[in-house]
Every structure is written in C-alpha cells, then in structure tokens.
Amino acid sequence: MDKKNVKGFLEFVYDFYKSMKAHEITLVYEGEITHQITKAFTSLTESNMAKEEESNTVQKKVFHVMVECLQNISKHADSFGSDDFLFAGRGIFMVSKADAEYHVTTGNVIENSKIDDLTKILDHINTLDKEGLKELYKTQMREGRLSEKGGAGLGFIDIARKTGRKLHYHFLPIDDETHFFILTSTISRNE
C-alpha cells in the first residue's frame, strides 16, 4: 500500500470502529458459518452476558436466537461469486446490545427463486400469536422431515416464539439472480 492508500485504510478502520460503536455492535462476522464458529460466538456472548449479570431468561433467549440464526445461514445461504469460485453457507452475523434490548442480525445471499416460499413462511409466522406458533411448531416437528442439511423448518418459528416479536426481514436486490436477505431479531432485556 502506498501512503495515500494507507491513510485511506486507517480512516476506514477508524470509521468502521466508530460506526460499530454508534450501532452498539458487540460482535460482527462475515464469512462461512461453521459449527466451530457457532460454538465460539455463542460461548463468547454467553460469557459476556454472564459478566453483565443478564438474567437467565434473557441469556437463554439470546442463546437460542443466535444458534438458530447461525444455523439458518450455514444451512440455507446460497452460493454467490463466479463459476470457478463460489461461496456458500456464508453471510454476515451481528449482535448488538442497546439499553433495553439485544439485536441479532443476519444477512446472506439468496436465489430469487426461493424468495416467494421464504416470504410465505415468514409472513405466515408473523400472522400467528403465541398459541398459533406453538401449534405450528408441534405440527412442523411431527410432519416436517429433516432436510439433507439437517434443517427441520423450525428455526424461524422458534425465533418468533423466543423473542415474542414479529420477524423483521428485508430482501435487497443484488443482481438478476440473487437478493440479500436480512433478518433482525430483537430480545428484550427486561424480562
């Protein structure tokens, strides 16, 4: 890097740092989500929460949501890149902590052809109340088959149940074939 690039890079690092602080991000990762990554992130967040004497209930909810979000990426993130260099099972994962709540945010590439089905599932979950979610979970557990990748279609339902909130999601267009799928889950700290 020449001098000008170094300066630009340093400014980027500092801006990135400031931006993380401004959004109260305590953990951010981009890359492949493996089982080891899932274990490392959950145990890191667990020990941080324990240090801050977060209640058991909140700790458990955050743990549940993190695991399901990470597994969603590792099992469902579609591949992107050029034909000779494809990335799959990757995405961005963030945890942020505000005064009253934790946010767990994931972002990953998804093929356009899957958007309709995914939207249907998420919107259906968002129409349900506590009892409805419980029934759907039971039905899905009974009737759903484990996919080849080990998904049972239960993750989103579990996130909605554990957070007690609607699933907030967006699709941002990337190119003709793919969108970027963003899901933010919020866990209240006052429980």
């Binding site: 549940h64 399901e68 557990m141 009974r142 484990l146 049972a152 239960l154 339902i157």
Partner: peptide, 12 residues
C-alpha cells in the same frame, strides 16, 4: 438444559 430446533425433532 438446552436443545436446538434440529434436536427437538430427533427428541420427538
């Protein structure tokens, strides 16, 4: 003390 959704299916 904890199980994920994938395990819940196998427990069933």
């Amino acid at each position: 003390v904890y199980f994920n959704t994938a395990s819940s299916k196998l427990l069933l």
